[in-house]
């Protein structure tokens, strides 16, 4: 009888420790539904040599700015893939679909007379939704042409959050990446095309 009471007490204690499981939401920065436009002839060849992200993006939790000095790492909303690989895919998709710029992996770019090419290195300072309802993407990038000339450009892209939630924020962040691709395409020397 005494052992039965001990068993009941143990179950009660364990039940007190029980907690409800948290549902995780996974997000993709690039869109798997985008058209890769197979058969399209590239007008330019771009090799993304380097993409440097801020340290707070080098983890899976979605991050948002809660005050001018604080960030919040969401435990329930996480990236389905590292932000760096996702941003690269999104950027390459946007360059190809919208600007016919073929992005090739670093080291595989072949400079030839038939196709103009350049190398680009991007350093992202901030890429997150802010506390004042903006999605921010800012930083700078360098374009290195085949003749060894270099140009540096600073970008500060913002899109307002029209809806609450990470779903909308991630969509706006995708748009910011698309704007960044347009910014890069606008700076490339396409006169040779």
């Amino acid at each position: 009888m005494k052992a039965r009471w001990w068993l009941i007490a143990f179950v009660v204690v364990i039940s007190g420790c029980a907690s409800q499981s948290i549902n995780l939401n996974y997000y993709l920065l690039h869109s798997p539904h985008s058209d890769n436009k197979a058969g399209q002839q590239p007008g330019y060849q771009l090799s993304l040599q380097k993409l440097v992200l801020p340290e707070y993006l080098k983890q899976r939790s979605l991050v948002m700015q809660t005050s001018p000095t604080t960030l919040h790492f969401s435990p329930q909303h996480v990236w389905a893939e590292p932000v760096q690989s996702g941003m690269i895919k999104a950027l390459e998709d946007s360059l190809w679909q919208q600007h016919q710029i073929l992005s090739v992996p670093a080291g595989l770019a072949q400079h030839n007379d038939a196709l103009s090419s350049a190398d680009v290195a991007i350093v992202v300072d901030d890429f997150l939704p802010t506390s004042d309802g903006q999605a921010v993407l800012r930083g700078k990038y360098w374009i290195m042409y085949a003749d060894q000339s270099k140009t540096m450009h600073i970008f500060n892209l913002q899109r307002p959050l029209e809806e609450d939630g990470f779903d909308h924020a991630v969509l706006q962040m995708q748009q910011l990446v698309a704007e960044l691709s347009g910014h890069i395409a606008g700076q490339l020397d396409l006169s040779d095309d």
């Binding site: 948002m64 435990p75 909303h77 959050l161 609450d164 909308h168």
Partner: peptide, 10 residues
């Protein structure tokens, strides 16, 4: 713990 998410711009 509250699920903090980005808020739309006012």
């Amino acid at each position: 713990e509250a699920d903090i998410q980005p808020k739309a711009q006012k």
